[in-house]
Computed example of a mutant assay.
Amino acid sequence: MSRGGFRAGAGRKKNSGLFGEKTVARRIPQSLAPALDQYLSNLATSTKLGENIKFIFTPQEHSLQLPFFSSKVAAGLPDIADEHQDYLNLNEHLIPSPDSSFMVRVTGDSMIEAGIHNEDILVVNRDINPKDGHIIIAAVNGEITVKQLILKNDHVILMPANPQYSPLTITQSMDFRIWGVVTSVVHHLGK
């Protein structure tokens, strides 16, 4: 009896997965695999997100366009607004590179002075080359964090925006990976 090779009827049935379509493999750095596995596991088992996992991972074909008034709103003295109205596509405005972007929810207050609060949603672009001063999402020894990237005298420092937290200087012994640069913050007022 031969073993291995093709066997009729073996394996996953065509288009039988959660999304009902063919699957593809993705390669990620080995060091990121545990963090990604943990994130996906938490996402799938979360009572809040688990029910909506198909919606989260299914590309949405529609775009949201809201009325956009061309006059600016004065943050100082009141100004008279004009009636000119256009439309602003929020998808294009907040996520100009959807193929290289992802979103993540913030936990904690280490970046509060940068306008990033607990429960805010960050839009992150993986294709932007991280530079000094950028706010980034990084994995440090398997833990995901959002901090300001400081490049100083051949040192990499992750700087919080809250004096109650200390900067973290990255050393050679640390497993450090930058996942992307934060491009937008979705922050609800009155929470």
Rank of each mutant, 00 (worst) to 15 (best):
L189S: 14
D86Q: 12
V140N: 00
L49D: 11
G11K: 04
F69H: 12
L18S: 05
I150S: 06
T45M: 13
A33E: 14
Q60K: 10
N15Y: 00
E119W: 09
V123Y: 05
P167Q: 08
A33V: 15
S41G: 15
V181L: 07
H155C: 13
A44H: 12
V73R: 02
P98S: 08
E61W: 09
L94E: 02
A8C: 14
K13G: 09
M159C: 09
I178W: 02
V146R: 03
Q38I: 07
S173H: 09
G76K: 06
S2I: 10
Q148M: 14
S63L: 09
V146S: 05
L77R: 11
L32Y: 04
G142A: 08
I128A: 02
I121Y: 04
T23C: 02
L32V: 08
E143P: 00
P167L: 07
F55K: 08
S173Y: 10
P160N: 06
P34V: 06
L32G: 04
I53F: 09
G17P: 01
Q164D: 15
R177P: 00
G133N: 11
L88V: 10
N52W: 08
W179N: 05
I28C: 10
K48V: 12
L158N: 02
N52E: 12
F57H: 06
I128C: 03
L66H: 07
P59E: 09
A75P: 03
F68R: 10
M1I: 03
Q85P: 02
V156C: 06
F6M: 05
S184K: 12
R105P: 01
R3M: 02
Y165A: 08
T171Q: 13
E21H: 03
